[in-house]
């Protein structure tokens, strides 16, 4: 008996969906990293613009 199976055509949409998920994940990760970087950048730039003396103040 020949047990060799022909390729299942339904695999293509699954691959496409997986590829789409990978691309969405890639975009989301990059956007998250950029936003986190911007927060850090704005914080450091604020310190640089105002000077470190801004940290020494009466509370």
């Amino acid at each position: 008996m020949n047990t060799k199976q022909t390729p299942v055509p339904e695999e293509r949409p699954v691959d496409a969906a997986e590829d789409m998920r990978r691309r969405v994940r890639s975009r989301s990760t990059a956007l998250g990293l950029v936003l986190a970087g911007l927060v850090l950048l704005f914080y450091i730039v604020t310190l640089a613009k105002l000077g470190t003396s801004v940290l020494i103040r009466p509370l």
Binding site: M20, R22, R23, V24, S26, R27, T29, A30
Partner: peptide
Amino acid sequence: PGAMMGDAHDF
């Protein structure tokens, strides 16, 4: 429209 989904590298 659904076919276009560039990843981070494309941008």
